[in-house]
């Protein structure tokens, strides 16, 4: 990992953080009945880290970036735990969606993976991330219905905004 890729990663994080905190955090989506939900694009940051990065480093980066998001959401630990889980799951997700023979030095991006594999990548990631995130938010099996419904609702908007953001960030590679 040379300094230019570090710079790119930091730049990506700043852009993602701005969209997450300055824009999406303020947006209130039309609630479905009693269920309010949020859109998260921030997991994209973990998804866009280089292919060949060791999972330990991945988890450590996810941990600290999650802390930064939590600091803004005032939910210390919730995003952190979810980000660590996503980082730990990322190699397994990549193994599912990655076309054979891809160069491990690259970073995953919309342009490099093509649209459909990238969509699958994002979908799998949010299938891991959102249920765990809402489990951490509600923290009890009593709220199992809320966890499922909110995960599904959030899933739709999150994937939508994540794909748009991935398109924007595509130019950075």
């Amino acid at each position: 990992m040379n300094s230019s890729s570090t710079l790119r990663i930091s730049l990506k994080f700043i852009i993602i953080w701005i969209l997450q905190i300055i824009v999406l955090k303020q947006v209130q989506f039309l609630p479905l009945g009693p269920y309010y939900y949020e859109a998260f694009v921030y997991p994209l940051f973990i998804l866009l880290l280089p292919f060949g990065m060791h999972v330990n480093r991945l988890m450590l980066i996810a941990f600290f970036s999650g802390l930064l998001i939590d600091a803004s959401y005032n939910t210390l630990g919730v995003h952190t735990a979810s980000a660590v889980v996503l980082a730990f799951a990322r190699p397994y997700i990549l193994a599912l969606v990655l076309p054979r023979g891809i160069d491990e030095a690259f970073t995953p991006s919309l342009g490099r993976l093509k649209f459909l594999p990238f969509l699958r990548y994002v979908i799998y990631a949010f299938l891991v991330y959102l249920p765990f995130y809402y489990t951490m938010v509600f923290f009890s099996h009593v709220f199992i219905v809320e966890i499922i419904v909110k995960s599904l609702l959030s899933f739709i908007v999150s994937v939508f905004f994540t794909l748009i953001l991935a398109g924007i960030l595509n130019g950075l590679d």
């Binding site: 630990g77 735990a81 889980v85």
Partner: peptide
Amino acid sequence: LLFVSLFLIV
């Protein structure tokens, strides 16, 4: 890391 996060949560 998960344990630390859960600790922070609670």
